[in-house]
Simulated scan of single mutants.
Amino acid sequence: MREHDIDPSARERRPRGKRRFDDDETPFLKHGRQPRPASVSDDGDPDHPLVGDRWSTWDQAIHGPEPYPDWVVTELAAQDTELGVLKTGKEADVHLVRRAVPDTDRSCLLAVKRYRAPEHRLFHRDAGYLEGRRVRRSRETRAMAGRTSFGRQMIAGQWAAAEFAVLSRLWEIGVSLGTVAVPYPVQLIGTELMLEFIGDVDEGQAAPRLAQLRPEPDELRGLWEQLVDVLVVLARTGHAHGDLSPYNLLVHDGRLVLIDLPQAVDVVANPQGAEFLARDVRVVSTWFAARGLPAELTDPAALTGQLLREAGLR
Rank of each mutant, 00 (worst) to 15 (best):
V112L: 09
L29C: 09
R99Y: 00
G52A: 06
R98G: 01
V101Q: 00
R114V: 11
G64R: 06
L96S: 01
D59S: 15
A61C: 10
D42H: 11
R36I: 06
Q34A: 14
L50Q: 13
R139A: 13
R121K: 11
Y115R: 08
H48A: 07
W71N: 02
R133V: 15
V72K: 04
F28T: 07
Y68T: 05
V51W: 09
E119A: 09
D93W: 04
R33N: 07
P49S: 02
V40K: 09
P67T: 00
A127F: 10
S138M: 14
S107E: 14
Y68V: 04
W55F: 02
T141I: 12
D93H: 06
H120N: 13
E66Y: 08
D105Q: 09
D53I: 01
R114T: 09
R121G: 10
L29F: 13
E82K: 11
P65N: 03
C108Y: 07
R137N: 09
V40R: 12
S56P: 00
P35G: 05
T57L: 13
A100M: 09
V72I: 11
R116M: 07
C108E: 14
H31I: 13
G44V: 05
G52H: 08
V135Q: 09
G89D: 03
R116E: 01
A38H: 12
H31W: 13
K113Q: 07
R99N: 08
S56N: 03
R121P: 01
G89F: 01
L86S: 03
D126C: 08
W55S: 03
V94E: 04
I62N: 12
C108K: 01
P67C: 03
T57C: 06
P35T: 03
P35R: 08
H48W: 04
I62C: 14
G89A: 04
R136W: 14
G132Y: 09
H120P: 01
K87V: 04
G132L: 10
W55P: 00
R106H: 10
L86K: 06
D43S: 13
I62R: 15
P46C: 04
K90P: 01
E119F: 00
R136N: 12
H124V: 13
Y115D: 08
L109I: 04
P46H: 04
R99S: 09
R36L: 13
S56R: 06
Q34V: 15
H63C: 01
L76D: 10
D93P: 01
R36K: 12
E131M: 15
A117M: 07
L130N: 07
K30D: 08
P69W: 07
D47I: 00
D42R: 14
T88G: 15
